[in-house]
Design a binder for these strands. Structure first.
Lengths: 364, 364
DNA sequence: TTCTCCATAGTAAACGCTTACTATTTCTAG
DNA sequence: CTAGAAATAGTAAGCGTTTACTATGGAGAA
């Protein structure tokens, strides 16, 4: 189809880089403008002409050059999403939501990963700005380094000036007056709820493990955790709080250390499900039964939570939904948050899902 | 920084779409060409001039327009990858490999998902062609519909003619003479090995569950499965082969049906780890112990395999590696496979990893 | 019949960048 | 000293689209 030469001819390469609109125009015996109009369909073209053009298009295997098109003013129809890691289910599910909503709205989706590097994150925002994406969605917790904040705020303003928008997904605002849109989930509330659940089961000494220090996600979860403790009049014990990382490996190794130190606790709150999985592994290795001897909870309700044995009691975050909303908001025409208001912040709820990893403590 | 106006001024939007290279040139008092050269650094520019230019760049928050750049001839520095689903770990890990290698080679990565729709897959290839990506990587098994094959072959030729390349990752060739590059893993060999392992443990009646029918991945796995059976002189029993889908849900429901029908078997080969997870769940629900009563194996060695209890014995596929290799191959200058040869097909090995889900059968 | 108005089609000017050429200095060597 | 080679800068021609403007030929109105 595409080639006129024999399909078995190994030297069929035309050497060029595909047909241009001019080739199509020539083949159809019309002007470039007419082809462009026939293709975009926003201007009348005689039926016979149109058909001739479409025939040439298929004959030549023509596809428009997206760059030329973008340059000439049409929008790029692309949204960019920046996440930590494609293979981390937390991000993968958000990305899936973004991807699906974007394609539902006829957009392509440019997914990139920072691997936790702040500098890289800033660079990626610039890269997307270069690409002139319709929006860039920044996913996941953020560092609270003020210098970083300022730099990102600059990017937000630049994006805004270019008619694009920066959507913060599950991360705190860059400050009043910075033109961004936000989609978040009730992080603090979920942490409160599940901690309260643990307490209601009779637990008093609850270990908190995981999550990078000075990281917004950690801060919110910890804050919900503390609020629940306070509400029940349970003293905060710094010895029970162990920040670090979000991976399974961290949960495993820190739990082992804690077990070695014979810290006194009856339940563990893993900063996310992956950390909880590591915790479970360490516990299992030492022959400590869950939930009989120790109760464990996680956060996120990523599929692995129900794969674990015992099935993990955790906090459900509507990840995919979050991604979809981010795109909806990004593409909506609502003005950015250029003030104290308003309508471009959206918070989705979280709720705990009770499975098999919690029971009342053994020794009350 | 970016804006001259007060940062608290809500009406700071310049309305435009950011500074252009001409603005920078004017601000620095030089010509556009000089700015371009200073930025790309492939042509000498006096130190003082260069510094002045860079100052203007930061002052104006200038970032180049990637489209203009691409249009003017520079490469897009982007590779596209097409997968089924971002949230499926099999694809997510391959995507991670692609993403990492791409960024190691200074490329952006355009990730898109087909959600199993063949038409959409073809459309996405066209979309990437529009974007003029340096390469497009097509991941995962393919349908063996001849019409589809032909259409994809056309795309491959078009891409090739445009100086890009189509990389088939873990899927069969489009036929001799079609210009593609290929990265695969030893799918059939892995299936053979793990089936043989099951047989060596004494199993004779092995159930095969999962994987879409008429799908290349299923075909290879099944073929390895059969070869192992044949090699040991075990009769193939069609009643033991149950194709269907790759999801956890399919494994669960089909296993339940099979249990209801009281099919006679001592081991189950799940077409992938997710299917195996579903199988395990169904078995657990019925109180059937694994591996004492029934042995189970999976395929892929995705993280969930070691999360399951019992830990799943499975076939390790170097997913991330696969993705990296795909990018390496894509970006290497080696000519495409325009003939029977050659060097642009790469196969990575697979091997079984033995964990806790297999033991000799109860009743031999 | 003449004039106005559509329906179509063509012309050509952007869009923002890269780069082949050309032009000016400033060295370096003979 | 002067010819020729750097080193540095500018000019301008694309790259492939889109789209405002212009042109042409009927059809219906007056």
């Amino acid at each position: 189809m595409t080639e006129k030469s024999s399909p078995t001819d190994p030297i069929h390469a035309r050497g060029g880089s595909g047909a241009t609109i001019a080739d199509v125009a020539q083949a159809a015996g019309v002007s470039v403008a007419t082809v462009s109009r026939a293709l975009s369909g926003n201007y009348p073209v005689a039926k016979a002409t149109r058909e001739r053009i479409f025939r040439s298009v298929t004959d030549l295997g023509y596809v428009a050059n997206a760059h030329a098109r973008a340059l000439a003013g049409a929008t790029t129809r692309t949204v960019g999403i920046i996440i930590n890691d494609v293979a981390d289910p937390f991000f993968a599910y958000i990305a899936r939501g973004v991807e699906r909503q974007a394609s539902a709205e006829g957009r392509m989706c440019l997914i990139t990963a920072t691997h936790g590097d702040k500098e890289r994150e800033l660079a990626l925002v610039d890269l997307m700005r270069e690409q002139r994406t319709d929006a860039v969605i920044l996913v996941g917790g953020a560092s609270d380094d003020p210098r970083y904040r300022k730099q990102m705020a600059d990017r937000a303003r630049a994006l805004d000036a270019a008619g694009s928008s920066l959507v913060l997904c599950g991360r705190p605002s860059l400050g009043a007056g910075v033109p961004t849109k936000m989609v978040t989930y009730d992080n603090e509330g979920g942490a409160f709820a599940i901690t309260d659940y643990l307490i209601s089961q009779g637990h008093r000494r609850i270990l908190y493990v995981g999550g990078p220090r000075d990281f917004s996600t950690t801060a919110s979860r910890l804050s919900g955790f503390y609020r629940a403790l306070d509400a029940r009049g349970i003293e905060r014990d710094p010895a029970l709080v162990h920040e670090g990382a979000f991976g399974r490996g961290f949960g495993y190794s820190r739990m082992r250390e804690l077990l070695d130190q014979e810290v006194d606790f009856t339940a563990v709150f893993g900063a996310n499900d992956l950390v909880a999985a590591g915790i479970l592994e360490a516990l299992e290795e030492r022959g400590i039964r869950v939930p009989q001897d120790v109760s464990v909870v996680g956060y996120d309700d990523v599929p692995v939570a129900s794969e674990l044995r015992p099935r993990l009691t955790t906090v459900r975050v509507p990840l995919e939904e979050l991604g979809r909303e981010a795109v909806r908001l990004a593409l909506s025409q609502s003005p950015h948050d250029a003030g104290a208001s308003s309508d471009n912040t959206l918070t989705v709820g979280t709720h705990i899902v009770i499975r098999d990893s919690v029971s009342p403590p053994n020794k009350p």
